[in-house]
């Protein structure tokens, strides 16, 4: 065994010890401070802990399924039970935790819908399409749907939506937005198209993004889970890795930002609330925000924002004006 492998073993052992210690019924601030010191001691500690934590959470999500499986094992060689309804529900929980696609019971599908869907300021809407795919529309979003025997086509004129697409190899599902065609077979992903800026984030499955007939140029991308492709209106393409769940969080009224310029955050908020926010100077709009914004009411959101950045808001003629503190 090389010394590096031994080191890694040691780090994993320490990470396991920490995860076990934090399970104490009477965990204290001392545990927290010691834990933090250990995290800071070496970068490998943090990643080892994160790995054990991911497995720990997976066991939590699958607990009922694993228990059922263990019970079956104990009764072997008795015939294997078919997965029960309860098991399927547990599977659903794990699929959701991992940000996977979730299909809806066909018997409860909404009746066939008109071809165009739209939302106004602050509105969210969940739509079930004739094939069972589910679309979550964010505020100020407009899209149209046309299904045929061989294709499922959605045109996202403007806005943001999460698509949970049912699997149908014979009928590919495409979303056309900002001069690009996003093509999938069965998957879950988020598309955001605002003023010609396109952003596609994949939670599960594979997604192809290629220029549409109207686009001047552009490359073809194949995105995998956790990848986010941004194409600016000027054609600049950026590919980055994100936590797929974050991209889907707006459905539950949570906006998650990592070093997002204030101006973009304000643009998002202005789609959610009637009272419009303005930023006093462009430099302020460049300030990055990292954190979670819970969209309950605007006054509370503004108060939290003023704690995240050195800003304050004052009433103005059109709504609110953000100033440097």
């Amino acid at each position: 065994m090389t010394s590096m492998a031994t080191d890694e073993d040691g780090v994993m052992a320490a990470a396991s010890a920490w995860l076990a210690r934090l399970q104490r019924d009477d965990v204290t601030e001392r545990d927290g401070l010691d834990f933090e010191a250990w995290l800071a001691a070496a970068p490998a500690n943090r990643s080892a802990y994160q790995r054990t934590l991911a497995l720990w959470h997976e066991f939590e999500t699958c607990a009922d399924g694993v228990l059922a499986e263990l019970a079956v094992d104990a009764r072997r060689p008795a015939s294997r039970r078919a997965p029960t309804r309860r098991w399927l529900v547990a599977g659903g929980a794990s699929a959701m935790a991992a940000g996977l696609a979730v299909a809806v019971l066909p018997s409860l599908l909404a009746p066939p819908e008109p071809a165009t869907y739209a939302t106004g300021k602050g509105q969210h809407r969940k739509v079930t399409l004739p094939d069972g795919s589910v679309v979550d529309l964010n505020a100020e979003t407009r899209l149209s749907v046309s299904f045929s025997r061989s294709a499922r086509r959605v045109e996202l004129a403007d806005g943001q939506a999460i698509f949970d697409v049912t699997h149908d190899e014979r009928r590919p599902f495409t979303v056309e937005a900002s001069g690009r065609i996003v093509r999938v077979v069965g998957t879950q992903f988020d598309v955001r198209s605002r003023q010609g800026d396109l952003r596609v984030t994949v939670a599960h499955g594979k997604v192809q993004v290629r220029p549409s007939a109207t686009a001047a140029s552009g490359r073809t991308f194949l995105l995998t889970p956790g990848q986010r492709l941004e194409i600016g209106r000027t054609g600049v393409e950026t590919l980055q890795t994100v936590d797929p769940q974050e991209a889907l969080d707006w459905r539950t009224g949570r906006l998650v930002y990592r070093a997002e310029p204030l101006a973009n955050v304000v643009a998002d908020l202005n789609r959610q609330f009637v009272e419009q926010i303005e930023i006093s100077d462009p430099a302020l709009g460049e300030m990055p925000i990292t954190g979670v914004i819970v969209l309950d009411d605007q006054a509370a959101v503004m108060a939290r924002l003023s704690l995240m950045l050195p800003i304050r808001s004052v009433p103005s003629q059109r709504g609110l004006l953000l100033l440097r503190k």
């Binding site: 699958c62 399924g65 694993v66 499986e69 794990s94 699929a95 299909a103 809806v104 019971l105 069965g186």
Partner: peptide
């Protein structure tokens, strides 16, 4: 209407394999 979300058929298979692995 309160509805129950369930995973798509191919994901049930993957999730099921993983649960067996964990068990």
């Amino acid at each position: 209407e309160d509805i129950v979300d369930e995973p798509a058929a191919d994901e049930v298979v993957v999730a099921k394999q993983r649960v067996r692995q964990l068990a």
